[in-house]
Structures are given as C-alpha cells and as structure tokens.
C-alpha cells in the first residue's frame, strides 16, 4: 500500500502545487485538508504517514495542529513538516520546538519538498 501524506493548507493554489509535486514522485498517496478543521477530521479517520501543514490557516493555526498531533498517541512519531512564509522565524522555531521535523519556506522549490519527503518516507 502506498504511503499517505496529509496536506493541510488553506490556499488552493499552494495545496495543488504540493499535491502535484508529490504526485510527480509517483509513489505516494495524498489527502488534502483545506483548513485545520478538516485536518482534525481526517486524522482519526485515516492513517497518514506524513503530515505537511501551513502555519497560517484561518481556523486553527498550524502550530496548534502540530501540538495536537504531537500529543496524540497515534501520531506522536509521524513525520511532520511546517510551511511558513519568510519573516516568520519565530513561528518556525515554535513549530520545530513543538515537534515538527522540518520546515519549508514559501516559495520553495518542488525538489526541496521532494527531497524532504523522500528523506522521511524512504
């Protein structure tokens, strides 16, 4: 069974960009969440192997999602990347402190994302 990646990102463009970047790798399945709430819904339902979340989302922020995930028995060790914008170093640091494995700064190169995915899911 292919490994599954959850993408929580409120910008449709960014989300589809991430999805297609991962699709191009040809080995993973993706689940999309258009906001934090959707992600919260998906998590208990599906077993995901990697989570990628944006930090700035309208309902709950990505940091809250990271904290939630890291404190959740089923997802304590699931690899997790955060996506932030330039200039939000503090948010990034907080995300890493909360247990995110890596971060990406928008705009990032598709290869960068692919390398990270490969590193954590290989």
């Amino acid at each position: 069974m292919p490994k599954k990646i959850l993408i929580a990102e409120d910008s449709p463009t960014m989300r589809s960009l991430i999805v297609s970047t991962i699709a191009a790798m040809g080995e993973f399945e993706t689940v999309e969440a258009a906001n934090g709430f959707e992600a919260l819904r998906i998590l208990p339902r599906e077993k995901v192997d990697l989570i990628i979340t944006d930090i700035n989302m309208p309902d709950i922020n990505g940091l809250e999602l990271v904290s939630f995930i890291r404190n959740n028995e089923s997802y304590r060790t699931t690899p997790l990347f955060i996506i932030s914008t330039e200039g939000s170093e503090r948010d990034r640091e907080k995300g890493l402190a909360l247990g995110a494995n890596a971060y990406l700064v928008k705009p990032f190169a598709p290869q960068q994302l692919q390398e990270l995915v490969r590193k954590y899911l290989a």
Binding site: G36, L40, L43, P44, D59, I60, N61, E64, L65, S67, F68, N71, N72, E73, S74
Partner: peptide, 11 residues
C-alpha cells in the same frame, strides 16, 4: 484570539 483543539485522541 485563537482557537485551539484540545489535546487528546479524537473519538
């Protein structure tokens, strides 16, 4: 200011 999901498994 913020909405935070409470930590714990979702039932």
């Amino acid at each position: 200011i913020s909405t935070l999901p409470c930590v714990g498994d979702i039932g």
